[in-house]
């Protein structure tokens, strides 16, 4: 990750109330292209994943809308989470979400991401996805059929083209709120490799609710990341020889 303090960074803020006519045309072109080209990263540990292959392949064909699957968080625009997320998988979801490049969108599929669904009484699942990260679109159902998935994606495309799908900005503006829910679930020592507060400053999205009680708690526990020790083989050196 580039250290934003070492390089002088000038961030152009999109001016929504007019401005230069060329920049407005360019912004609209970019918004249109963003809505017509969406790379999806699937996070399918729940049961809704089974409805996605038909949405992608010959019957419903997402690619005609410009939507295609991608495999790495750096490349993806949409994080698509199907079905319930357990506490353990939610940690991985958070790590994935913070690595994605903005503008990024989150879609929750199935009832379990909306309110816990049939796992509402379970001690091991996260109930409401939008407590932990901003969700741009929910597609409810148990499970939603491919038609519903495609309809939901079209709604997201319309929102992006209109410049309304700005959930990712909310994560920086109200980081304290989201971090609080994460700490409630993962414990006080929870930290991710991404410096969200520095990124909020970088994007010019630092607001009064970015910092709070929970970020102060994070600062107390935050330890700098250290590289893992390089090691060949799985066991101790002696076992490798044998």
């Amino acid at each position: 990750m580039t250290d934003t303090e070492q390089f002088p960074v000038r961030v152009e803020q999109p001016d929504r109330n007019g401005g230069n006519i060329f920049s407005r045309v360019f912004d609209e072109l970019t918004a249109f292209c963003r809505s017509r080209s969406l790379f999806i990263l699937h996070y399918c540990t729940g049961c809704g994943a089974i409805e996605l292959p038909p949405a992608m392949t010959s019957r419903f064909d997402m690619e005609r809308l410009g939507i295609s699957p991608m495999v790495s968080p750096r490349q993806a625009d949409i994080l698509l989470i199907t079905g319930y997320v357990s506490v353990k998988t939610l940690k991985r979801v958070m790590l994935t979400y913070e690595q994605m490049g903005s503008p990024k969108y989150v879609i929750g599929i199935c009832s379990c991401t909306v309110n816990g669904g049939m796992y509402w009484q379970s001690y091991a699942t996260a109930k409401k996805l939008n407590d932990y990260m901003p969700v741009d679109l929910y597609i409810a159902g148990c499970m939603p059929r491919p038609e519903a998935v495609i309809t939901g994606l079209r709604q997201l495309m319309d929102k992006i083209a209109a410049g309304e799908a700005n959930g990712w900005e909310d994560y920086y503006r109200r980081y304290d709120y989201y971090l609080g829910h994460q700490q409630r679930l993962f414990g006080e020592t929870w930290q991710t490799p991404t410096d969200v507060i520095a990124e909020a400053r970088h994007y010019g999205l630092f607001g009064p609710e970015t910092l709070g009680d929970h970020t102060r708690l994070l600062e107390q526990h935050q330890a700098p990341l250290e590289a893992l020790e390089m090691q060949l083989g799985l066991g101790a050196p002696d076992e490798v020889k044998a």
Binding site: L29, T30, F32, C33, R34, R36, S37, T57, S58, D61, E63, R64, G66, D77
Partner: peptide
């Protein structure tokens, strides 16, 4: 047996 991407899809991807 799919329809495939629209005409300007490669351009949309690059601009995006």
């Amino acid at each position: 047996r799919r329809v495939g991407p629209p005409l300007l899809q490669p351009l949309y991807d690059i601009v995006k």
